[in-house]
Amino acid sequence: MRREGLLALLCLSGCSGAQTAFGGQGAEDANFIQLFTVFMIVCTVMYLLVSAALIVAVWRRRRTAMVVEDCNHQATSGVVRPALIGWTALIAIGLTALTLVGFFTDRSNARNGSHPQLKLTVTANQWWWDVEYDWADVSKSVRTANEIHLPVGIPVEVTLKSNDVIHSFWIPNLAGKQDLIPGRRTDAQLLPRKTGLYRGQCAEFCGTQHAQMALDVTVESKADFEKWYGAQLQTAPVPKTPLQLAGYRYITTRECASCHNISGTSAGGQVAPDLTHFASRRSIAAGTLPMNTGNIYGWVADPQSQKPGNHMPTIGLKADDLHGIVAYLETLK
């Protein structure tokens, strides 16, 4: 008994935590769970009934009195007619229930996204997410990467783009999947209902590092979100120690700046993740490694051994340069 309980728990543990469609922390996901439950109940009931009828039919002995050639079925059984009527009614009720619940779910999802109060653009790249918070006033816009912060209870409209191949935007705890297609704009609506840390994941195979293309999602209170957003609006701090200064010099004058942007410095590349607040994020390289000093060292020293095939080249840094770069990157809170 205990072992079975443990097994059931193990199965369920796959459906809990930061990346599950059964979390219900977003409005669309909660709707989905409702829809899933109704479909599950209706389909289970029908499945059991059909199976039971089949088993009874197999079990029961053929009645010799029932002669097919006479075409006189009704004479042999008075049960068939009401059973057929009941069966038809059951099917009609079941299908009506499914149609209605489908309709109301769709309507509710459409309403959630009809008046967005926050707009952001997510652009997928092999294999990372470029995130921009859009405001009419450009000075209030923020660009970050591989991480989105959302205020709880605020409807969000996400514009989705892709720079290379087809990707799919999926934060299972909040909403369903949506493809990002090169040359087109698609969109997704999010309405987070509970604060927490969630994990998004690319859900369309997009190349060798598809599995390492995750998105850290933080749903927080409005005050916390505004605090975070205010910090993101700041430019990068000035390097203080000689080591940080050496790293700053390397980053802004050498290979790094060809691709990466750090606001407030001359590093202005636009083709790789924005590093202005790199050290404030939860992970490195789209959820590949947790953010800590050791992993920054490992990643900068040889990104191709951490995530083979990704578009950041292994430069082959000298130890002194590496120390400086990591020291400077860690100041980018």
Partner: peptide, 13 residues
């Protein structure tokens, strides 16, 4: 063969 790293490494090149 796909060489993701380049050979030799920059440091030793």
């Amino acid at each position: 063969e796909r060489q993701t790293r380049g050979k030799p490494l920059g440091e030793t090149a």
